[in-house]
Design a protein around this nucleic acid. Structure first.
Length: 252
DNA sequence: CACACGTGGGT
DNA sequence: TACCCAAGTGT
């Protein structure tokens, strides 16, 4: 849930989710439709699909217990470099570099003297690894500290260097907080995008009672009919929707 | 490596 | 009001 989504928005969703499906085997037994509905408006609904798949995989391959090994974690649906190591470090206490968007920004400033991080890269893991304390517990605290510093002090918009514990050693602050430019790619415009169309279709399918609904009742007034149909097709291709003749619904 | 992929709060 | 930004991943 935390992938690309603010913590404060996740927390209530997480609590409701865990109340309903407290363990992987319990979640694995749920239907895709129920999982997508429970995901509600958290965004990136493919994550709900992946989380459900991961629960099925954990149940089948690991006896219902989330694995500790990073490679086993990486093999699960929707688990990438960040999440795999976050689980291994924060749930199991092992020593790995955990690099999220906050950590990347902290490293860019404190170590590289840049105002903004470079585009995400595996090098980030290498750099974090080179800074990690030798002890497991210290390494976990270092990982969490970097993330937390980026989330609360070394923020994207208005960094609070006055209260920063790294103020004495930060390369960017020492250089006078120069504007070093931003090599990151700009986020695509949402208004009028295919993503917006997908979001609108999926919202309709989530709210549809009873399901399924006739295909020709799906956003008949959408400004771009081709875009709407593209959205429907891509949702079906992703496994987020299911069509049966002239009817469509969340997957059974 | 670039790009697609949601949604809503903050400035 | 228009942006910016968010505990990323898969292709």
């Amino acid at each position: 849930m935390l992938q690309q989504t603010p913590v404060t928005r996740v927390i209530p969703h997480l609590e409701a989710w865990l109340d309903r499906w407290p363990t992987p085997p319990v979640m694995a037994a749920a239907s895709t439709a129920d999982v997508v509905r429970q995901w509600a408006n958290l965004g990136y609904p493919r994550r709900a699909l992946w989380l459900h798949r991961a629960a099925v995989e954990v149940t089948a391959r690991h006896g219902g217990v989330v694995p500790r090994d990073v490679d086993a974690l990486l093999a699960l649906s929707g688990i990438g470099d960040y999440t795999a190591r976050a689980v291994a470090v924060f749930a199991y206490g092992d020593r790995h570099p955990v690099v999220d968007t906050n950590t990347r920004r902290v490293l860019a400033r404190a170590v590289e003297g840049r105002a903004q991080p470079s585009p995400p890269s595996r090098r980030d893991l290498t750099l974090m690894e080179s800074l990690l304390p030798a002890d497991d517990v210290d390494a976990a605290a270092f990982n969490a500290g970097a993330m937390e510093l980026g989330a609360t002090v070394c923020t994207a918009r208005s960094p609070r260097c006055e209260i920063c514990p790294l103020a004495g050693t930060c390369a960017w602050l020492a250089a006078g907080r120069p504007d070093t430019g931003d090599a990151r790619r700009r986020q695509a415009t949402y208004e009028g995008s295919d993503r917006q169309a997908r979001g609108a279709v999926l919202r309709l399918l989530r709210d549809a009672t009873p399901a399924p609904v006739p295909l020709d009742t799906v956003l008949p007034d959408w400004p771009d009919a081709q875009q709407r149909d593209r959205a429907i097709d891509s949702l079906i291709a992703d496994g987020l929707a299911e069509a049966d003749g002239e009817w469509i619904s969340l997957p059974r």
